[in-house]
Each structure stands twice: as C-alpha cells, then as structure tokens.
Computed example of a mutant assay.
Amino acid sequence: MADVLSILSTAYKTTVPVTAGKYVAVDPETYKGSWEGKYANGKKFEIAISQIDGFRAQVKYKSEGTVKYQQVLIKDNAFRVGDTKFQLNGDNKAIIKTVVTDAATGSTYLDTAYATRDT
C-alpha cells in the first residue's frame, strides 16, 4: 500500500502546475456584472460575475445549452470556469478562451472570443 501512495504522491507533485505569486484582493467593480460576447461561429455566451469577496467570486457561464455555476479564484486578472478561461483585458473588456471538443472527430481546439460588460 505504501508503494501505491508513494507513486501517487510523486505523480501529483510532477503534474500539478505551481503558479508563482499569491492571491490578492481585487476591485469588485472591475469584474462585477454581466459580460457578453460571440464566438467566431456565431455562438453567443454570457458570463455573470457576482458576490466578489477578496479574490473569490461566484460565476455563471451560459452558452447555448450549456450553463455552469462555479465559485472561482481570481489571480493575475483571470479565472477559469470549467473549460473556459476569462482574462480581463482592459476597461469593460475581456478575452474568453474555451477548449472545445468536436463530437464527430474527438479532436479539441481553442475557441477565442472577446466579451464586453454591460454598463
């Protein structure tokens, strides 16, 4: 049993990415609200960010049939919701990157879009 735990421990240490720096509190007004955009294929999405406390926030990601709710940690002006990364890119603008798996072929690709916040 000890060998199995040792192997798992070693594998965990080598596969988990370690990010530099610490989480710091963010300005809630920079993130709070409804962010909307459209992918290149015309598919619309909406990201609603609320309950920001320090570097934590509640996020709802919605895109044509997919709805995800998640508590996120904001670091370096970015956070992830499932396969989607939100990167703040300026005043009321963000870059959204989503990993998409093609159901027919099983291949994956990165879909990039821009979001703006309703003010």
Rank of each mutant, 00 (worst) to 15 (best):
A2M: 09
D3E: 13
D3M: 12
L5Q: 10
L5H: 06
L5R: 12
L5A: 07
L8Y: 11
S9K: 15
K13D: 05
T15L: 10
T15R: 02
V16F: 14
P17K: 15
T19W: 10
G21A: 04
K22L: 09
K22D: 10
Y23D: 14
A25D: 08
P28K: 13
P28N: 03
P28Q: 07
E29C: 06
E29G: 01
T30W: 14
K32Q: 08
G33L: 15
G33Q: 10
S34Q: 09
W35Q: 02
E36A: 02
K38L: 12
Y39A: 07
Y39H: 05
A40C: 08
A40G: 06
A40N: 09
G42K: 06
E46N: 11
E46L: 13
I47F: 02
A48V: 14
A48G: 02
Q51T: 09
I52Y: 10
D53T: 14
F55S: 09
R56F: 14
Q58D: 08
K60H: 12
Y61A: 04
S63V: 04
E64C: 07
G65N: 06
G65F: 05
K68W: 12
Y69A: 03
V72F: 09
I74N: 00
K75Y: 08
N77K: 14
F79A: 04
F79K: 05
R80D: 01
V81M: 10
V81D: 03
V81A: 03
G82M: 13
D83Y: 09
Q87S: 11
Q87F: 04
L88C: 01
G90L: 14
D91E: 13
N92L: 11
K93I: 15
K93V: 15
A94Y: 04
I95F: 01
I96Q: 01
K97Y: 06
V99K: 02
V99A: 10
T101I: 15
A103Q: 10
G106T: 12
S107W: 02
Y109C: 04
Y109I: 05
D111C: 01
T112L: 05
A113P: 02
A113W: 05
A113E: 09
Y114P: 00
A115Q: 01
T116F: 07
R117V: 12
T119I: 14
T119P: 01
